[in-house]
Design a protein around this nucleic acid. Sequence first.
DNA 1: CGCGATTATTTTAAGCTTAAACTATCAGCC
DNA 2: GGCTGATAGTTTAAGCTTAAAATAATCGCG
Lengths: 174, 174
Amino acid sequence: MDQPRPVFVDSETVVSERPRDHKAELRLWLRLLTCTTLVEDDIRSRLRARFDVTLPRFDLMAQLHKTPQGMTLGQLSSRMMVSNGNLTALVERLVDAGQIERRVSEADRRVVQVALTPSGEAAFADMAREHGDWIAGLFAGLSEAETEQLMRLLDKLKTSARSAMQAARDRTAP
Amino acid sequence: MDQPRPVFVDSETVVSERPRDHKAELRLWLRLLTCTTLVEDDIRSRLRARFDVTLPRFDLMAQLHKTPQGMTLGQLSSRMMVSNGNLTALVERLVDAGQIERRVSEADRRVVQVALTPSGEAAFADMAREHGDWIAGLFAGLSEAETEQLMRLLDKLKTSARSAMQAARDRTAP
DNA sequence: CGCGATTATTTTAAGCTTAAACTATCAGCC
DNA sequence: GGCTGATAGTTTAAGCTTAAAATAATCGCG
């Protein structure tokens, strides 16, 4: 299987053809994805069962909780790594539910500020406590040293990915 | 235990006070999520730009590629970790696009088998080659040793999460 | 000042995703 | 043979998500 087929290396495509098969990286990526999906699905279903709240709503409230003075939609969008248009509807639903409030900035009338309401803050506090326990439970099989090591490696991966993405961008628009 | 530092339950510290603060695990989880989202979004946008295909479609085709004899929807659902109902529509679109084909099992008429068509196989082969390069590029900042280590730690995390989820299930329905 | 470029957000269309209810089929059992 | 329960998929309603186009406000610069 996968016998070393002859590869015609022209000067354009040196990086990409056969030399290495990228199998290790692909397996690592799939494993990373599996872990994330596993945790995410578990948290999603617990949030629904216990608090009748969706994961995106929880995430949004968590961001606002970290910044009590509120944030603009643009900031939220980049911190949550979701598209701008996504937030419009999500924020709308949370406003309807009385958990957050929006106000147009006076300084710049394009900007919309969003913040937790007191009731949203209280609701989030309840959820966050259990959420922390759930996460801790899911990660409980890792020792403190392993946790640290994993943190370090993921940090390195984050840096690597960002730099590869930047390089690709530079290549496209030089 | 439970060092009684005076904790004022204000909006800053709600997450972190009581029995243990779970802060390290929470940060680790957020970092894991960030890495996955970063890679996933990059791959998604490249697949769209380069092949005009969505990530879920690519993932489905990747699963079928690994199993040339085809799979049932149930197997696909559990391997892809998506809901059953999700697949119905996704498969429908790929059938319309001529990339895969469905046939009802003769042995058990509830079961639907799905497999790549020759043209789907060819299309996937093209995409997979570049996809592998992209992933390798994103992970290029990690040494071989680090890749292995990360793999090992994620494996451990996977085991930990699964066992925590099983424990929670046992607690609910004993 | 006024105009073109930029920035922040919303809108739109298409597609993805889930949970829950539903349909159809099968397997075991008397 | 005809229940009973389990299993495989589909449907439905709601919500999430994106990319791209549109709107609206601000900024920079002549």
